[in-house]
Design a protein around this nucleic acid. Structure first.
Lengths: 223, 223
DNA sequence: AACGTAAAAAGTTTCGAAATTGTGTATCGT
DNA sequence: ACGATACACAATTTCGAAACTTTTTACGTT
């Protein structure tokens, strides 16, 4: 039978992953089994398996006989990560523009529309990034990659973006973003896609990614 | 204490991974726990954890409540895989040429020398690829990537190569390789590296990767 | 007081059995 | 004979405790 019966393991993995990406678990933090077992109401084995998968996704680190930790963030890693994304994401985007059909195009437009209508900062917490905007921003960029038919390229680009989420969640320099027209950057990328101009779209995407990291490094928000 | 004390898990993972890459486990094959526990003399939990990690490495597939299987090979996946490698491996190689020091250069020369002095086919089994050559070929290409300082790019390229190993091990069309000067291809790549010519080296590497896949597809060796 | 040693505590790692789910087989009814 | 149902079997999944390591704490010596 076609049974999508979710196992406890898949739930724990999804839950744990979301908790890391949403910032409920802090980079570098120890992930003790006792805590996690209580938090998700499952046994050690299930937690171990989920953590093992997250290690392979570079969201968790493990040290033999010492347990697991949320992946730490550092300036050096951010530079490497950004370099990798600037190489690979434009490739995936070029493929998407070449291969993506009208359905994908419409999804891009829709995702961009949702993003454009979300406020960058939360009304109640003006010092922090709005959860809604972060969510829609993430979805927007992932939608861009979805047009790429090659599942391997897509998965690689998506995995790099997930790692990058950690930095965005934890050290976004709101002050330095004031002069930045981030909405305009997104709009320009969408326009280039609709115009089926891969060179322009790729260049804009790389500039978008690079600028975020440059501002982050300038802000000295990361040790 | 700095303790590199190998856990049973790491051993099982390494062993299992090697068994898949060396062809002792067949693509698509069911990986039953009873068998694996007996084979590696460990409990189910340890096996599950190792398999989970291999799933993330795309060497094993899992279906909920149905267990784990060695990743299957297919023409479609081979095309995707080759496309991804042709995009990413040259990027890593360009970085290596730009960043690699003299120590890396010498390692490349050494790895190539070992490869050049291995016979393609085994003396006793002329129909199959020599294990020694396969090993040295794999090491040679991984050495090329080692010059790239960016650990994320390196890891991505290496992971794709691991997946490609499955195809090489299982469906290498020796017949069609007769007219191919594979040693010459490797030598040309090394020459381009030593000449610090990234464009030429990248082009040669892409041609090298592409040709292998083209011959494989022509041979109809894969269902 | 500082250092090294040893016991105790806390933690990870591993196991083997119980619970759960999927798979195959035989039986019954049409 | 064919199809569906119920049963028995085999396999995965999950658990909780035992075994082992690391870390902390307490103690005695220099």
């Amino acid at each position: 039978m076609v049974s999508p019966s979710k196992t406890r393991n898949e739930e724990a993995l999804a839950h744990l992953r979301a908790d890391i990406l949403n910032g409920r678990l802090i980079p570098g933090q120890k992930l003790a089994f006792a805590d996690l077992c209580a938090r998700y109401a499952v046994s050690v084995g299930v937690i171990r398996e989920a953590l093992s998968r997250l290690v392979e996704q570079d969201l968790v680190r493990s040290a033999p006989q010492q347990g697991f930790f949320v992946a730490a963030i550092s300036r050096a890693d951010l530079v490497y990560l950004t370099e990798a994304r600037c190489e690979i994401e434009p490739i995936a985007l070029r493929h998407a523009i070449a291969e993506g059909d009208i359905v994908w195009e419409s999804e891009v437009v829709a995702a961009h529309h949702r993003l454009a209508n979300a406020s960058l900062v939360a009304p109640d917490a003006p010092d922090r990034l709005s959860e809604e905007w972060a969510e829609r921003h993430s979805t927007f960029h992932e939608t861009l990659l979805l047009g790429c038919e090659n599942p391997r390229l897509r998965a690689i680009a998506t995995e790099l973006r997930a790692s990058a989420e950690l930095y965005r969640r934890w050290s976004f320099p709101l002050d330095h973003e004031q002069n930045r027209d981030i909405a305009g950057e997104h709009a320009a990328i969408v326009d280039a896609i609709l115009a089926r101009d891969p060179d322009l779209a790729a260049r804009l995407l790389v500039e978008h990614i690079s600028l975020t990291t440059e501002l982050l490094l300038e802000s000295e928000a990361i040790a």
